[in-house]
Structures are given as structure tokens and as C-alpha cells.
Design a protein around this nucleic acid. Sequence first.
DNA 1: GTGAAAGCGCTAACAC
DNA 2: GTGTTAGCGCTTTCAC
Lengths: 334, 334
Amino acid sequence: MKKRILISDIAKALGISVTTVSFILNDKAKEKRISEALTNRVLAYVQEVGYKPNELAKSLRTGKTKIIALIIEDISNPFFANIARLIETKAYAQGYRIIYCSTDNRLDKTQELIELFYDRQVDGFIITPTVGLAPTIQRLKDHAVPLVLFDRFLADVQTNFVVADNFTGANEATTHLFEQGFERVGFVSLRSEQSQMMDRLTGYSTAVEKQAKERYTLEVATDSWEQDIQDKLADFIKEHRIDALLFATNYLAISGLKAAKAQRFKMPAMIAYDDHTLFEMYEPSISVVSQPVEEIADKLISILLNQMQGKSKSLREVVLPCQLKIRESSRFIS
Amino acid sequence: MKKRILISDIAKALGISVTTVSFILNDKAKEKRISEALTNRVLAYVQEVGYKPNELAKSLRTGKTKIIALIIEDISNPFFANIARLIETKAYAQGYRIIYCSTDNRLDKTQELIELFYDRQVDGFIITPTVGLAPTIQRLKDHAVPLVLFDRFLADVQTNFVVADNFTGANEATTHLFEQGFERVGFVSLRSEQSQMMDRLTGYSTAVEKQAKERYTLEVATDSWEQDIQDKLADFIKEHRIDALLFATNYLAISGLKAAKAQRFKMPAMIAYDDHTLFEMYEPSISVVSQPVEEIADKLISILLNQMQGKSKSLREVVLPCQLKIRESSRFIS
DNA sequence: GTGAAAGCGCTAACAC
DNA sequence: GTGTTAGCGCTTTCAC
């Protein structure tokens, strides 16, 4: 292993002190009124030997790592992967890097991850919280760690968050189905206390009540087997003679499509939550409630950066509108 | 911000020295023959006050960060997102965390990212290299930085790598199409010198020659607009009266399906490279050459860990077989 | 304008 | 067995 060149090497080679080199390297040359000649000489030499400071030592000294922790449900879910991509690009432009981990929505794992990254002195957190995470988040807040939640928020602790307007999203989707002429509109969701799931459920229920129709809901356990989900779905549809369905997540909708294909029944009309290449291309194309991914990523980064730079101490609770993309799967065919 | 508790605080509170605490915390208690009573007292106190060492300081001192840099083409591509997920899980189990960045296959960005993470003292690299990256990789090698490439390798520099057997994958897919009875089998690929693209092309060409048929290839520029790709594809199919197609990547195949949908022509028989939920669910379901993602991730991590732990200095060049999943889209219908 | 030196929090060689 | 202390490589105060 070739030895890395150090700031002291530079100083020695140029016959000046470490301080001077450090000042010049940290753009404090004029502030400290170091001669332009020397400044240029140092810069040229640094360039020549390709010196790069050890960021670790720098971080230890400054307390800043320029790293943001992204603690996310599942990086392989396209919805999260897309957000991750956007966040990464925006953070990168500001000189920040992203360290990520998937939580699988497991509380213990999430807590552990947060502790871990906290010990690593990350500068800020972007988190999709699990139920029960409030105490952990509160602790971060106590330590004045910049953080912002997304996709869902926690009722028990006040924090910055960026979520979609899930109530309205689900409400409009449901209403659209009724307006198309469907009568028995079901809702398939996760058995979860997560805010986004609750809001979607309430959105659906409110729409059903407004239309004075019957509610049909199926809640799937988060740790169900794929096969189990498919069976439950098939039963649910048949038993209640459902003629239209709203799915609370993209993967539930995909399970639904798989069930229909495997068990050879005709999928009723449907709308999915969160867009996916599959929905766009499927025959018939699947209507979706789509979250504004780009804006979510934008807000997340800007809120976090503001906080990290100490610009704003006020709480930011951002709720962004969803977009109902009507495609073929929600068309009424009498 | 509540002050973090330090190892010196522990020592002071217990009236012992930092060394002792450090030894105990680093499992060197018996090695240094520290009394069990003291060991337990320290452990209990550490537990009680919730002391956590500053990992940054630890890293600076030990030179180990327990962080692996994942430098990948595009985290939002399901193929890479899936691998990322698997790598993450396996690394996590070994106490390593992942820091990632997407390169978009741009040389300058990739170089910059590698430098950056190198300066951050990551313990190892997993990289999908771009063309022209050899000098940078060589430099890492000179500095004895553990690294392993994947998805493609570089001819100009010897390194560990894990790739799929792209030649055979493409060859078998092409042969399968001919055996089905198709006559005019085209190949759609990226205009790129990347090894995996070249191998897929050679695999196709060799199969065509063996069958003594005509070659029809379309190479799309990597920075093309989606619309442009679709137009080119439509023209290509019509002009050569293609009756079956092999796509070199999943997104090219998706562009093909989109083109067919938008421009209302019938997609010829086809096989895509890399599986995708869409291909499984599409009507007709799309045959694919699927890479063994799980094994790739396994090999990557085990090779990298071995290297990081200094266990093996020998070069590991792993080529894993692809699996041809025959579905409906490659069926011959006369 | 420039340099010496203190420390960021930790590990581990060395001393006793 | 336990403590003292010298760094890891950097930034920054303070002195000149």
C-alpha cells in the first residue's frame, strides 16, 4: 500500500507550516491574508502531488461528515428506489453523500440502524419510520440531529415530514370508481398502523360513506407469504362479488394481478397506489394514484439541508397532492 | 445538543483508566487478564449510561471504517436495486454498511465518486465500471484497496470480478429463437464497449452464424431519448421484417414494448435480458435471460470480505451462468 | 502573515 | 492487571 500523502508532507516539502497549508486549502487564504504567491505555490504543489485530505480526520475535527443516512423501507421497491435516486442526485450536487439501509418495516432493525448511523456521526437522517419508532426519533430530536420523515409520519412525536395527501388520493380514486358506475368497490391494504395506510383507508371509507355504499376491506398481514396474499385476494373478490378494487400499495396490486393470472379469474376494475412500469404497460393499463416522487425528493433534501445549515428551526410538515392517473383498468364496461 | 458521553467519562466515573475501559469494550478483557468483576462492572455501567463509542474516532485510529462503497450504474434500475438489496443484507450481517452512488455510466462521475469514497477511507469497493475506468481502478489496486467489479469487467486491468456468462446467455436465447422456427432474428443493444454488451453481441452473432442466417443489429446510443429509441426500434423491425428480437437490456425491451403500444404495431417474438416484474406479468409473458442475482451478490460480498480480511490475495474472476426463462413471447406461432 | 500546539475521541504499545 | 501516553490527520486558537 503506497503511503498516502499528508498535509504535513506538503508543509515540509514547501518549508512552511501545516497551519498555512490548511488555511489555504480551506479557502481562508485571504481572510488570513496569506500572500497570493504562496497561496498559488501551495495550490500548485497540492495539485501536482495529488494530495487529498483524509476526510475522516477532517470529520473528527469538524464534527461534520457530509453524509446523510437514508433509512428506507426497501430499496428494491421501485417507489423507494426512484426516490433514493432523486435524493442521491440532489444531495450529491450539494456535496453530500448517501448511506442507505433497508428496514423491512421492522422496528428493531430500524432502531439499530439509526443508532448505528448516529454513532457514525452522519449529518442528517431521512427516514421512513416504522410504528413504534417515536421514542427513538424523540432521542434524535433531543440531540438536535437534523432529520425528516417521509412516506408516513408519527403521531407521537413532532418532526419534519414530507408525505403525500393519502386521504385525498384514496378518496378520489374510490370516488372515481363509483362515478364510473361500479357498485361493490373493495379496498385491499396492509394490516398496519402506519399513517399512510390509515389515511388511505380513511380516504376510501369516507368516499364509500358519501356514496352510501357498502365497505369491503381486506387487510393483509405485512409478513404474509405471496401465495397466501393471492389466495386471500381471490377469496375476497369472489366472496363479496367485488366489481372494483383499490389497492393500497403497488406490490399488493401486483399480487392481485398475479393471483388473477395464476387462478385464472378475471380481475375486476382496479386502481393501484404508486405507479410502476408494469401498470403503464399492462393490458389493460392500470389506473394509479401516483405520488409526486420528484417533489417529495426535492422537499426532503431542501428541508434537511436547511436544518443542517441551521437556517430554519421551525417544523416543516409538508403534504403533497397525489395525482390520479386514469387508465384502462378503471373503465366501466357494462 | 446533549453532550455525548465519552470513554473518558466512563473511566472517570468508575475511577479507572481509559485503557482498561477500551480493552474491555474491545473484547480484550481476558487477553489482558482484567478481572471479571471489573469487566462486569464496566459493562454494566456502559449499558446503564448508554455509552456508544464515536465510530469516527475509532476509524481514524484503526484505519477501518466498516463501510463498503457500492458504485453502481443506476440504483433505480430493478436489476441493480435488487442486487443492492441483497448486498446490503449480506454486508449488514457481517457488520458492514453500504454507501452507494449511481454513475449513469459516466466516466467522469465514476472517477470522482471513487476518489471521494477513497478519501472517506471506505474499506472496500463494489463497482460497475464504465469504459475508460481502468487507470482509476489500477490506482486503487496500487494502493491495495479491496475491490471487486461486477456486471462487466475491464480488459486493461486485472481485478476481481463477478459477471454473468453473457456470451452463453445471448447465444442460447438466440438459438432458442431459431429453433422455434424464426428466421429473421434481430438484436437490439446499446452502443457501448462495455464487456457485457460486447459478449451479448458476440453470443448473438455466433448463434446466427451457426444457423447460417442473416444478422440484424440495432445499436442505440446510451444517451438517446426514450422517444428516439422507440422510433428507431419501430423502423428497424419494419425495415428488416424482423420476426424475433433479442434485447440486450431490460429497459431496451421495455422501450420496445412501449413503442409497439404507442405506434400500434405488433411486437415480434422477443426475449429480454434481465428479468423484471413486467416481463412476468405482461400479456404475452416475456421470455428472458435472467442473471443469478442472488449468487452474484453472494460472490461479490464473499470475495470482498476475503480480500478485506486479507485472507486471499489471489484474483477471483467469477463467471456465473444465466438462465433462459422461456415464456410466451418466444413461442412460434405459424 | 505565519507557526506552534492543543485537541477531536479513540486504540494500543509500553511501562509498572 | 492497570495506567500513561503517543499518536491517527486534521482544524483552529493564540501567540508572535
